[in-house]
Design a protein around this nucleic acid. Structure first.
Length: 569
RNA sequence: CGGGAAGUAGCUCAGCAUGGUAGAGCACAGCGUUCGGGACGCUGGGGCCGCAGGUUCAAGUCCUGUCUUCCCGACCA
């Protein structure tokens, strides 16, 4: 491509709307433009990157025998009612009616549609296993879209669905996809990790997330260097540290703590460390009001709580509910005398002589012990923090941040049961298909690559994702020889199958260098009057400071060599 | 949905406390000088001051409403 002919609107100013680096750079480099909140146009340069990511995914999926299809973006209500998600999915599901008052939605995911397709068409075990995938636009009416295409409402996703005759088959399909994902993210040049995750809205028994490691990531990853355990913070378990406790009882005394509501306030007021306090949180759930106890200074992990107690929803109780159920105001709740079910973090088992709220304004109770109140169950409900014990070994946990780019789920029978996706086995008996589903955020990958590769001058993209592999940059296009050589190099590289951009614009060199850096093109060939006098041209890697001078006759060969090296990482 | 901020030229923003000719830099067009890291000079085009009401002789500026965008929490590829 010739730069002069290509639609590449770069900008110098930092766009006001952007917060994270990838969003800023994608706007500045002319990759994307916003149409509405969370909805973006992909411009030629950005689209080239997006297409490259798609192609990598396609190749790796096909290698595993998955077959590409495209399913509708607009879907009828009926299917969603059948899977019960019409009511459960919530407001992210954008619903509307057509001219005939038929209720429809924009697809946020496609389990219903594939399951419907496969149940209609597949009758026999002989046709299984089957894995279908698509690369398609999704729409989720996110509460808060942000970070550009990282969390858009409309976005491109690769979603694959596997159908197997039994659990073992499903296991094998899951493993195949897991491998494909590792290959895909390696080819994208990512530093990434795989973590155990919560399966959320999609459901199913367990799942893994593929996380690109980046400080700006929205997710927190908890991991153990000793045994390799890694999990999303919302699911991360914490190991127990057991220690003996004296079974003391009935020693507690009520003390005045005027105006001290927060853990830190009470701890400071009583002159004790925060971990000598017991935090009592009152939750409103679909199974009624419950109390959750955790050591002071620790947070309760609501996702874990929800999964442990098999709840559909949990939310902190309002002030009025707290007063009704405990008899005291917010900030003074404690377990003693409460009649609601109490669930305590396992740490609480080993606490001794601690402080709890008195369920009365300005009162706390000191010298409390575990036998002073009844706990329904001790479980792992706290948010993991760095330094906690690993749940799988004796190691310690640490935390990093990541961007979720892939998520694979074992769905089991969830959808096949709800929608009756069945086949006949060898004995002629009807069986339900065992499903799995596998997503990759395609547009998000482009953003993640930029989060992981950038400097003060712009993007530093891996060759596999960059819109072009090479820029040929004649410093002065009015210098006939420069331009002539530039064209020759450009043609030569095209012939070798290299993705090359020729910056043939009559611009000052600085402008062209800046644009080239901004766009993150991994390799730059600079052709200038000065070097040509000695028969030399320059080659520079985007990620490196120094350029090398190459004899102009050798340039094609050298560039091809470099590109190959860059792509095979 | 709750909490916060902002909407003025294509972009980044000033002007608004105290109402009175709509501004700067960048970008864009023309001419000239420049030409290895976002050049300089001159000239020029460009604005329903988010939208709708209101107060006023007079509103970008004051008041009310509304829409949009962004940031902080709950969702997720």
């Amino acid at each position: 491509m010739l730069f002069s002919k290509m639609f590449i609107p770069t900008v110098k100013e930092i766009p006001k709307e952007a917060e994270v680096i990838s969003h800023k750079l994608m706007l500045r480099a002319g990759f994307i433009r916003k149409l509405a909140s969370g909805i973006y146009t992909w411009l030629p340069l950005g689209l080239r990157s997006l297409r490259k990511v798609e192609q990598i995914i396609r190749e790796e999926m096909n290698k595993k025998g998955a077959q590409e299809i495209i399913m509708p973006f607009v879907q009828p209500k009926e299917l969603w009612v059948e899977s019960t998600r019409w009511e459960k999915y919530g407001k992210e599901l954008l619903r509307f009616v057509d001219r005939n008052n038929r209720e429809l939605c924009l697809a946020p995911t496609h389990e219903e549609v594939v399951t419907d397709l496969v149940r209609r068409e597949v009758r026999s075990y002989k046709e299984l296993p089957l894995t279908l995938y698509q690369i398609q636009t999704k729409f989720r009416d996110e509460i808060r879209p942000r970070f550009g295409v990282m969390r858009g409402r409309e976005f491109s996703m690769k979603d694959a669905y596997s159908f197997d005759v039994d659990e073992a088959g499903a296991e094998a399909s899951y493993k195949e996809m897991y491998e494909a994902y590792v290959n895909i993210f390696n080819r994208c040049g990512f530093r990434f990790g795989v973590v155990e995750a919560d399966s959320g809205q999609i459901g199913g028994s367990f799942s893994h997330e593929f996380m690109v490691l980046a400080d700006t990531g929205e997710d927190v990853i908890v991991s153990c260097d000793t045994c390799g355990y890694a999990a999303n913070l919302e699911r991360a378990e914490v190991g127990i540290i057991e220690k003996g406790v004296a079974r003391k009882k009935d020693l507690h005394k009520r003390v005045p703590t005027p105006g001290q509501r927060k853990i830190e306030e009470v701890a400071a007021f009583l002159g004790i460390p925060a971990d000598k306090l017991l935090k009592t949180m009152v939750y409103n759930t679909n199974q009624g009001i419950i109390g959750v106890l955790v050591q002071g200074g620790r947070e309760i992990n609501e996702t874990k709580l929800k999964n442990l107690l098999h709840l559909d929803f949990v939310e902190l109780a309002s002030e009025s509910v707290i007063e009704e159920t405990t008899g005291g105001p917010l900030g003074f709740s404690g377990p003693i005398g409460l009649s609601i079910p109490l669930y305590a973090d396992r740490d609480v088992m080993f606490m001794e002589d601690f402080v709890v709220g008195g369920n009365e304004r300005d009162v706390h109770i000191v010298s409390v012990n575990i036998d002073d109140f009844a706990v329904k169950d001790f479980c792992d409900v706290k948010v993991a923090v760095a330094g906690d014990k690993c749940p799988r070994c004796e190691g310690r946990l640490n935390t990093t941040r990541g961007i979720e780019v892939g998520h694979i789920f074992k769905l089991g029978l969830k959808y096949s049961k709800a929608m009756n996706a069945a086949f006949l086995d060898k004995e002629g008996k009807e069986q339900l298909m065992v499903m799995g589903c596998y997503g990759i955020g395609v547009s998000r990958i482009v953003a993640a690559a930029i989060e992981q590769g950038n400097d003060e001058n712009g993007m530093i993209l891996p060759a596999a994702i960059a819109p072009f592999e090479v820029t040929v940059l004649p410093v002065n296009t009015t210098h006939a020889e420069s331009l002539e050589i530039a064209h020759a190099v450009y043609k030569g590289l095209l012939d070798k199958g290299i993705d090359v951009l020729l910056d043939d614009r009559d611009e000052r060199p600085g402008v062209k260098f800046k644009d080239c850096d901004l766009m993150g093109i991994p390799l730059r060939v600079t052709i200038g009057e000065r070097g040509l006098k000695e028969g030399l041209v320059e080659i520079k890697l985007r990620g490196e400071k120094e350029s090398q001078k190459i004899r102009k006759e050798d340039i094609i060969e050298k560039v091809v060599e470099h590109v190959q090296k860059l792509k095979h990482l």
